[in-house]
Amino acid sequence: MGFDQFVTDRLDRLLRYATAITCDKHLAQDIVQNVLLRAQSKWDRIGAMDAPYLYVKRMVTNDYLSWRHRKAAREIAVERGELARHVPSMADPADAHAEREAMRARIAVLPRKQRAALVLRFYEDCSDTEIAQVLGCTESTVRSQLSRALQTLRAHEIARSATLGVHS
């Protein structure tokens, strides 16, 4: 597959993925742009792979998880944390939209790697093996990252329901 064709086919999906893991569309745009420029210069090799998309996704993920974006990620997390504190009090628990927004805010404050694993599982529908490839870790690490993320989200969910006096 040629580079231009790859971009045509996958750019939107890559942007969605990057936005989901970074929780910041501008950071996501920067990362995707930089990664694609880098990918283009070695497209001979990437284009010949079985799964170029998986490889590029790995580049995007590594870029985000690298030290370069640690500060940006922390700022986003703080901002979203503020938001998360306000959402429950404003929300009507019966409102599906509010529920979703509350979950979004909670996902945004997860550690970066846990969130990446979560997005790969629940948005990109990746297997443990694929997630391990993208994150560059073992499958057992993938499983522990996912279970820790789910545990945190569940704890929040229970706390929130309790605060609002809802039985879930």
Partner: peptide, 12 residues
Amino acid sequence: RQAIAAEAEERV
């Protein structure tokens, strides 16, 4: 799933 999809939807 819904929350992540909503986040992804924000893309530029």
